[in-house]
């Protein structure tokens, strides 16, 4: 549904732009394509890496790794898996709720979800292109550490 809104917005603004200035609109579309093509090699690589990774680290494997371990060991494992994998949200949340049922604690799930979203090892090459090595490293390390704060907060509220 949300993607639909985004399409409507893009189409509407594109039409408006076209009515106001055809030349500018053509430039905008060219820029859109150029920006896309710029990161396309990395995008395609990311897609294959994720495909292979998720084929090996299936939801069952992940739940075996996170679900069985508890305490800090479980959190460390969960945060590492969360950092290196990139799972779309519509897969991640059902997986997380399945993990809960298979015995993982709220804190392990929270650190997993948080690193999954905020830390992106696989996408680091794309991030470096736009932000450089240092900013990318700092952001990802801080996000990793922050995910533990999130886990503790969740542990306090829900534990």
């Amino acid at each position: 549904m949300f993607t639909g809104i985004l399409y409507l917005l893009a189409a509407g603004l594109l039409l408006l732009s076209f009515l106001k200035d055809r030349r500018k609109t053509a430039t905008a579309l060219k820029k859109a394509w150029k920006s896309f093509e710029n990161i396309l090699p990395q995008l395609l690589s990311i897609l294959i890496i994720i495909g292979i990774m998720l084929a090996i680290l299936s939801p069952q494997t992940i739940s075996g790794l996170i679900g069985a371990q508890s305490g800090w060991a479980g959190m460390v494992i969960a945060s590492i898996i969360g950092s290196i994998t990139l799972i779309p949200g519509f897969v991640a949340f059902p997986l997380a709720s399945a993990l809960l049922q298979s015995g993982a604690g709220f804190m392990q799930i929270a650190v997993f979800i948080s690193t999954l979203m905020m830390v992106g090892i696989v996408t680091v090459p794309v991030e470096i292109r736009y932000f450089g090595k240092k900013a990318t490293a700092v952001r990802n390390i801080l996000a990793f550490a922050f995910s533990y704060v999130v886990a503790i907060a969740i542990g306090v509220v829900l534990g």
Binding site: L29, K31, L47, I52, A55
Partner: peptide, 27 residues
Amino acid sequence: GLTGQNALEMLSVIPPIFILLGLLDVW
């Protein structure tokens, strides 16, 4: 299979993002 599935997912969400990016850049 997973790569294909993710590629489709990417192709479905990415076009409006880049079109909006282009419009933002120009306007």
